[in-house]
């Protein structure tokens, strides 16, 4: 009886949790920035998830649950200061957005001229890596993983309103960084309308 419920647990876990391994590995890569640490982090995440699988609430998103475990494991293992929230230089962020207003370009202009294709994928990755961790996280979870604000709020442990404002700011910063790249690489020329 016991062993059959055990097998059942294994089967369910393998079926439901293992399908998200690509997403978890991608996210790990962004957090740790190297594949060895990313592998370790994913291993550890699955170990913890398996151990506490009985605490998982049926009907909620197992993907979000796994991400939350992964994020906490990352903080425990890799961040020097335990659970200390990252200090965000808000002045820097604000000045970023201030600069945005001065710029006559936005993505709509690039699209019109079909210039978006000229960006390299590396540009996008490095632009993303320039964002503070908290901002990078919401972009990845929302735009790459397609999680809802509620799930993200659950994972990063902050109110939904904060997820929303972080996402909005993060996208503005990304636009700015990418436009800077575009200027530097001569994809667009300065001082156009």
């Amino acid at each position: 009886m016991n062993s059959s419920s055990d097998n059942n647990k294994k089967g369910r876990f393998e079926k439901e949790a293992l399908m998200h391994i690509d997403s978890l590995y991608n996210f790990s890569l962004y957090l740790t920035k190297n594949s060895d640490d990313a592998k370790d982090l994913v291993q550890e995440t699955y170990y913890k998830a398996y151990k506490f699988f009985h605490q998982f609430q049926e009907g909620t998103s197992i993907k979000a649950w796994l991400f939350k475990i992964l994020k906490n494991t990352f903080i425990n293992l890799y961040r020097k200061k335990y659970r200390e929230p990252e200090i965000i230089d808000y002045e820097k962020v604000e000045s970023f957005i201030g600069l945005m207003k001065d710029n006559n370009f936005d993505f709509a202009h690039l699209e019109e001229d079909n210039l978006l294709n000229k960006f390299l994928s590396d540009n996008v990755v490095s632009a993303l890596n320039q964002l503070p961790d908290d901002f990078k996280t919401v972009v990845l979870l929302s735009d790459v993983e397609g999680l809802s604000y509620k799930e993200i709020a659950d994972i990063v442990e902050c109110p939904i309103g904060t997820v929303r404002s972080r996402l909005s700011r993060a996208r503005k910063m990304l636009q700015k960084i990418l436009l800077n790249y575009a200027l530097k690489q001569g994809i667009i020329k300065g001082k156009e309308k």
Binding site: I21, D22, S23, L24, Y25, N26, L29, S35, K39, V42, D106, F107, A108, L110, E111, L116, F119, S121, V124, V125, L128, V139, L140, D143, V144, S168, R171, K172, L174, Q175, L178
Partner: peptide, 20 residues
């Protein structure tokens, strides 16, 4: 339009690597 384009651009360009 600008933000919408950025979102779809990021989605398109951040190709997912599959786990080893």
């Amino acid at each position: 339009k600008s933000e919408y384009l950025l979102k779809s651009f990021v989605q398109k360009r951040l190709s997912k690597i599959s786990a080893p």
